[in-house]
């Protein structure tokens, strides 16, 4: 079980970050796909939301698989944030005083914004859970546990929430563009021959995910989804 010693080295931490990140990429893709059902009307969307709770029935009980997924995602998130924090500390110790003049040569915006972009995503995620999963009073309107469609439409009529969601989605797309490429590089699955295709796929993925997510709150604001 030497795999449990991965967390000791910087590369091991990055491997943990890559694997947990890829788990979240899978979740985010499915989540975006599910969200798009909102365009098919309230019955269809609410049936999908209920379907998540009855996933695996009759072998699995009500919400059982959902909680397994939540557990996996929570553990993945904690490990992802922990390794990011730990590596950030290590990097700050390695370069305590910076250059007076600094020029970047080939680094892109996405690769340089991974850390604070990740913090923006984390803040967004917490607000999102309070807003549309737990139904905490972080936005006006009534939260109805069994009516996901109503909660979504009502939730995005609150413009500050919509703006925060859009910021979260933009941060996510930047994070994914560099993150997906970086995961392949960290897992040793990249070289010069594959770099262009991996970066292209990462760009396509981040565009699909950001547009797929952004279109829902924008449609609510535009009155297409009501």
């Amino acid at each position: 079980m030497y795999v449990m010693t991965l967390h000791r080295s910087s590369i091991g931490k990055k491997i943990i970050m890559a694997v947990t990140g890829l788990i979240w990429v899978g979740f985010v893709l499915l989540h975006m796909y599910g969200n798009l059902k909102v365009f098919l009307g309230p019955e269809y969307f609410n049936a999908y939301a209920e379907g998540l709770r009855t996933l695996g029935a009759p072998i699995f009980g009500h919400t059982h698989l959902l909680y397994v997924a939540r557990l996996v995602l929570t553990v993945a998130l904690v490990l992802h944030v922990w390794s990011a924090y730990s590596l950030t500390q290590q990097a700050h110790h390695a370069r305590p005083s910076n250059y007076i003049v600094r020029q970047k040569v080939q680094a892109n915006r996405a690769s340089l914004s991974m850390r604070w972009g990740g913090v923006v995503i984390l803040i967004f995620l917490i607000y999102h859970l309070m807003h549309l999963t737990w139904g905490l009073p972080v936005a006006p309107g009534v939260f109805v546990q069994a009516d996901a469609y109503h909660n979504l439409v009502n939730g995005f009529h609150f413009i500050p929430a919509t703006i925060l969601y859009l910021l979260g989605v933009i941060a996510l797309s930047f994070h994914l563009y560099h993150g997906v490429f970086s995961a392949f590089q960290t897992l040793g699955l990249n070289n010069q021959n594959t770099e262009t295709s991996i970066k292209g796929a990462a760009l396509a993925l981040s565009l699909v995910i950001s547009i797929g997510f952004a279109v829902v709150p924008l449609s609510v604001v535009a009155g297409i989804v009501r």
Binding site: L87, Q90, H93, R95, Q106, A107, Q185, G188
Partner: peptide, 28 residues
């Protein structure tokens, strides 16, 4: 030393143009 974030600044300034492919190889 710090950890790698696959930004590529090292490869860009390397006087011997050593490729980041070797980093992927080391990771593996």
């Amino acid at each position: 030393f710090g950890g790698c974030t696959n930004i590529g600044e090292c490869e860009a300034v390397c006087p011997k143009s050593i490729s980041m492919d070797f980093i992927a190889r080391l990771n593996r």
